[in-house]
């Protein structure tokens, strides 16, 4: 049923751009079939895909404790959380697909190392306290990052984030509650909690990315309404939120320079080791190879399952 090929006036790019800009600046949403600048689309695909990869790879560090969780209640909570993260990944891949990406292709890019995921998931989870600290720090940082994204200019991304944010705050509270329970337990447990805090604090600050003067593309993303706050702003918000929580918990954040600055009303913190961050994100972290190998195995070792289902569907197509 192909339509006759008739001459059409060439689309007026300038008018389309104007309309796009007006939509974004009025805080209305851009939807999948709207005209959009190519750079906007590509940046979004990159951002959403790598966000999705982070959710999926993020299942592994805590997933490593699923079989050994020390109580049935903790096992159920952890299983539900890891399952939530799978859901987050799926919602996000789904948003990326509205922009013309293909999930299997994005997964290939992840496995081939051409697209990245959050560096935080390349650290090992050494004790069960890590499960609590990941909930508190990593899901907490995710909330700081994600809440502004609920207002992202791209509709499908913003809608996915609304749902995801609700679950992240649940995760953070669960993690914190585990730590509260542990610090009320034995001396050994308290030591485990402090040790986990010592290991995860700095990597969690790195989750917000390099300082603003080192983030050349941020201004464009802000103008497009797909980035709402600068890396440093979000990091500061996270530190301000975490310090009082640490006090209630009775743990020490491993930063001797951490002090409250009356004048600004913010906590000042020490210098971050960005060389470590760059090493880890570019593949040299303690667990990069393990994380990717597992994802690869899930894809490759089970390819026959996906093929079987496709073959069955073909045979039984009405």
């Amino acid at each position: 049923m192909s339509a006759p090929t008739l001459e059409r006036p060439a689309p007026d790019e300038a008018a389309l751009q104007e309309q796009f800009d007006a939509t974004v600046s009025a805080e209305h949403r851009i939807e999948p079939r709207d005209w959009m600048p190519e750079g906007y689309r590509k940046t979004l695909v990159r951002q959403i895909a790598q966000h999705a990869h982070s959710e999926i790879i993020g299942m592994q560090p805590e997933g490593d404790w699923l079989l050994a969780a020390p109580s049935l209640r903790r096992k159920a909570i952890l299983l539900a959380k890891v399952q939530d993260e799978a859901g987050h990944g799926l919602y996000l891949y789904s948003a990326a697909e509205t922009l013309g990406a293909d999930r299997a292709d994005l997964t290939d890019k992840l496995i081939e190392g051409r697209q990245k995921y959050s560096s935080i998931f390349n650290y090992p989870t050494l004790t069960y306290a890590d499960v609590g600290v990941i909930g508190w720090f990593v899901d907490g940082a995710a909330i700081c990052n994600q809440v502004p994204l609920c207002r992202s200019s791209y509709g499908p991304y913003a809608r996915a984030m609304i749902r995801i944010c609700k679950e992240e705050s649940f995760h953070q509270r669960q993690g914190y509650e585990l730590l509260m329970t542990m610090v009320r337990g034995t001396d050994e447990q308290r030591a485990m909690v402090q040790d986990a805090v010592d290991r995860w604090w700095w990597p969690s600050l790195m989750m917000f990315g390099p300082p603003d003067d080192d983030s050349p593309n941020s201004a464009q993303s802000m103008a497009w309404g797909i980035k709402r706050h600068s890396n440093d702003e979000l990091r500061q918000r996270y530190v301000d939120m975490s310090v009082p929580q640490a006090e209630v918990l009775g743990v020490t954040l491993p930063d001797p320079e951490l002090t409250y600055d009356e004048a600004s009303g913010h906590y000042r913190f020490g210098a971050i080791d960005w060389s470590e961050f760059k090493r880890v994100i570019s593949g040299d972290g303690p667990m990069n190879a393990v994380r990717i190998a597992r994802r690869r195995a899930a894809r490759d070792d089970n390819a026959w399952v996906r093929e079987a289902a496709t073959a069955y569907a073909r045979k039984h197509a009405s």
Binding site: I56, M59, Q60, G63, L66, L79, A80, V82, Q83, A86, G87, G89, L90, Y93, R294, A297, A298, D301, N302, V305, R306
Partner: peptide, 15 residues
């Protein structure tokens, strides 16, 4: 979990 044939199946097995 984390080893399933598809992400949809991770969710189903988890349930």
């Amino acid at each position: 979990i984390t080893n399933a044939p598809e992400l949809e199946e991770e969710v189903a097995i988890g349930n």
